[in-house]
Each structure stands twice: as C-alpha cells, then as structure tokens.
Design a protein around this nucleic acid. Structure first.
Length: 271
DNA sequence: ATGGCATTAGGATAATGA
C-alpha cells in the first residue's frame, strides 16, 4: 500500500484580529510563535485589494481573503494552498456582508473542510440587526447540516458572537438582554450542538474563566472581565481526531492588541 | 454607561463594534 502525501496532523486557528492593518505586526509575531497550519481571521476590515498579503506570504503562508471596505471581512491563511475556496454564506443573495468563507485542504488521505465565520453581533436587539443575526445563524445551520451529510472532517470556526452559558462570561448579569446572551441566541447555538458539532474548547477544558474577548474599555483585561465568544465547532469525524485545544491568552497583553485572542486546535489521524 | 476605546476611511468625524 502506497503512503499518502497528505499530512496526518493539522493545527487550525481562529482569531478576530480587529483590523489587519493595525494588527499586522502582532499577526506575523503570532504566526511565527505558534505556527498554525491554517489560520482563520475575522474582522480584517479590508478589501481583497488592500489586504497586506506580501508580509504574510513572507511569513510562509498562502492567503485567501473575502474582504469588504471598512468593516467585516474574513481570511484563511495556510501553509499549503487549499484545493478549493468558496465565499459567502448561502441562503440570502441580498446579503452583502463579508462574513463567511470556506476552504478545503488535503488531510489524512482525504480532506479537511474549514469554515471561517464572523457571525453578526446583533445589537441593538430592538433593530433589524437582531433578526439578521438569528437569520444568519439559521443559514449557517443549514450549511452545517449539508456539510455534516458528507461525513468528512469539518470544522466551523470563528467569532460566533455568542456567549453559550453563564460560565462563559465574568459577569452574566451585565450581559442580560444583550444580543450575545439572549435566550434566542443561546438556543440557536445549542442547535449546532444538537446537529452533532462539538465545541472543541469546552470539550478539552474544564477550567472556568475561559475567555476569548476582553473589552478595550474600563480595564476589562486587567479585571479579567472577559467573555467566550470565539468557538471552534467540529464534525464528529473531526472531533474523533481532536488532540488538543489552546486559547492564546497571552496575546491580549501584547502592544496594540486585538480585543480578541487566537484559539487553536490540533487534529491527528490515527496511524 | 448612552461605548467610557479602537479601527477604518479619509483628511473632520461618522460608522461600526460587543
């Protein structure tokens, strides 16, 4: 039997960098330090044309973007070029916000499918923004259902803008009524789990105070007043290969940080 | 806290975010 040319382990990261231009130095430093094979970025706040791809390619990464002027925008960086890239979340042709892209990579004799998402914030809840968020989650659920039927290793990672449970925030009372913590939002998140997706951070950590975001204001970082809203959801086939998961919390203390920190996981196929 | 801060585009502030 011939040996496969595809890798047997892959590390996948997600990071809402809050502006690629302001975060380029931090991004390159983190890539060099943590060496993820695949890095999904959100809130690049850049068009495809103005994305600083040269500096990232110099760091050894292939760059695929789905940008938008001024805000939103996602990107997938990878050591190896993806076999296939698709942009936009299906289900609403009128939705112009750049919040979703997907790439397929060779892995363990087959493929790994990676979805990179920046789920709408949804505030204020008494505006059209909240139903947009819930509808977006419904569209994402439809996509997840379709992908799960393939029975392939599949990860759906990014900034979900969802606080799943009270233990996922420092001060639950402060988030009552907020779009990130509304019952409808949390219920919609639970439906991803009902479909069979595994929350990788929860599955590998039993510590409390696991946060991925700390506000810039009011000394939130110093007080550890954080929330866990960046998630890495895995198909059963990917969950079976989950070898570890990390939150790169130290990055929040760097100069000129994003308000989010990176999360990483490693998948390993049985040999 | 009604973003108290931060980013982008642009060239003053408005829009956006969580």
């Amino acid at each position: 039997m011939s040996s496969s040319a595809t890798p047997n382990t892959l590390s996948i990261a997600t990071w809402n960098i809050n502006g690629i231009k302001a975060r380029l130095d931090n991004l390159v430093a983190w890539l060099n330090e943590c060496q993820p094979d695949i890095a999904c970025l959100q809130e690049i706040k850049s068009t495809d044309e103005t994305f600083p791809r040269a500096a990232i390619e110099e760091a050894g990464y292939h760059v695929e973007t789905h940008g938008q002027k001024g805000f939103n925008g996602v990107a997938i960086l990878s050591r190896v070029s993806p076999d296939e890239v698709t942009r936009r979340l299906p289900g609403d042709d009128g939705d112009e916000q750049a919040r979703f892209m997907e790439a397929v990579f060779p892995f363990a004799g087959s493929v790994l499918r990676v979805g990179c998402l920046y789920l709408p914030n949804g505030n204020p809840v008494d505006t059209e923004k909240f139903p947009y968020k819930l509808d977006w989650m419904k569209r994402l659920r439809a996509l997840a259902r379709e992908r799960l039927e393939l029975e392939e290793p599949f990860v759906l990672v990014g900034d979900y803008n969802v606080i799943p449970q009270p233990e996922d925030c420092h001060d639950p009372q402060a988030w009552e009524g907020d779009a990130l913590f509304r019952p409808e939002t949390r219920e919609a998140f639970r439906l991803f789990e009902s479909l069979g997706l595994t929350d990788a951070i929860r599955a590998t950590n039993d510590a409390d105070e696991l946060y991925t975001f700390w506000d810039y204001q009011a000394g939130a970082w110093q007080k550890n007043n954080g929330i866990r809203i960046d998630h890495m959801m895995l198909s059963p086939e990917a969950a079976r290969m989950l070898r570890g998961c990390e939150i790169d919390k130290h990055v929040r203390s760097w100069e000129k940080p994003s308000d989010h920190v990176p999360c990483r996981l490693t998948l390993g196929a049985e040999s």
